[in-house]
Design a protein around this nucleic acid. Structure first.
Lengths: 190, 190
DNA sequence: CGGCTACTGTAGCACTTGCTACAGTCATCA
DNA sequence: TGATGACTGTAGCAAGTGCTACAGTAGCCG
């Protein structure tokens, strides 16, 4: 075992870049190692197993996503917050993270580990960041949890359909409709 | 090649049942064949390749989903339509199909074939069925496309989160909020 | 009968998988 | 100096992958 983890962290970052590009499914140690200029042998030196590596990659990716959301300046109102979040999620960097998250979540649907556990944990952190952005943009704190439930689900759904109809005006309209819905939740009594 | 496809169809149905249970990722011909009481050799007799089998399974599953939606009696209004659709999708039979659809869509996100193509085609048919149900339940036809865009995305998103918080009251509230949003799209000018 | 077609079992190929045993190198530190 | 610990290359294992070649069997039709 390495006593300090700096090398391991470097590898984790590079591996995350690779996986964000190629996906989790069919991920294989040898091609990954080749791209990183190392060997499968070394990956399994730094990480206890492939699952350990995958779990690490998932966490690194989620950390990046959350950092990106938290770095967002507060939007001028709730409606703008939804649109700004959507815009942020279409940044290539964040879009890749979301795409991999969706893949991991889908794998978790069938109870596969380590996906299920890590996704559960990552989702909580992500939800918290999105909720905080809504609050910072004018959503009453006590309504933020409810608002983010619909918001997050719809955003995930959009991501799933995104490559099927990229830039589709129907999709853009749906985002505006979602913004209206979130505003309604955040402002009306219910 | 078989001249009539009846045997192939039987196998396709049985294979679909198996895949709905075990998932697409990591699907392997030998275990599947064993469960069906046959051999990998025979699967590749009936289907040109594993990809051909997978594409067939995807289509069979989608056909089942769509049939289930189309068999739904018209709801009393748009709001009820959303709630009824949500209830239908939580039927074990349909929930399984949706789960696998989400898995296939996630695989398609990375451009993997045959997932990407079949998912695109399946999605269109599914969207059509949901839109028709909305129309039958009082949505003006010209607003149905717009309504279904948000509705479908949110429903997919809920499916993704479902195992993470099954029966969660927050989720139930989100479904009601979604229903309100769809009603708004279906009735208000926009 | 003889041929044709649908179907099936056996065996195996070439390849990839995660993972490990073993033997080393090299810098640091007592 | 010599030992310790971090790190790395080579080689290989056992298992599993999709797929195929080959050799059938059984039933139908002329």
């Amino acid at each position: 075992m390495p006593r300090d983890t700096s090398r391991r962290d470097e590898v984790a970052q590079a591996a995350t870049d690779y996986v964000l590009e190629h996906g989790l499914v069919g991920l294989s140690l040898r091609p990954l190692a080749a791209e990183l200029g190392t060997s499968d042998r070394m990956l399994l030196y730094h990480f206890a197993s492939k699952d350990d590596l995958v779990a690490t990659v998932l966490r690194v990716s989620n950390d990046r996503s959350v950092a990106e959301i938290r770095a967002l300046p507060a939007s001028i109102d709730v409606r703008a917050a939804v649109l700004d979040l959507w815009a942020a999620m279409n940044t290539p960097r964040l879009a890749r993270c979301q795409r991999m998250y969706v893949e991991a979540a889908a794998l978790g649907l069938f109870g596969r580990e380590p996906y299920a556990s890590v996704v559960r944990e990552a989702n909580e952190i992500w939800i918290g960041a999105v909720a905080d952005h809504l609050v910072a943009s004018g959503t009453p704190r006590e309504r933020s949890r409810r608002a983010v439930a619909l918001l997050d689900a719809a955003l995930m759904g959009f991501q799933l359909d995104l490559p099927l109809d990229a830039g589709d005006p129907v999709l853009e309209q749906a985002v505006r409709d979602l913004a209206d819905a979130v505003v309604a939740i955040a402002t009306h009594a219910g």
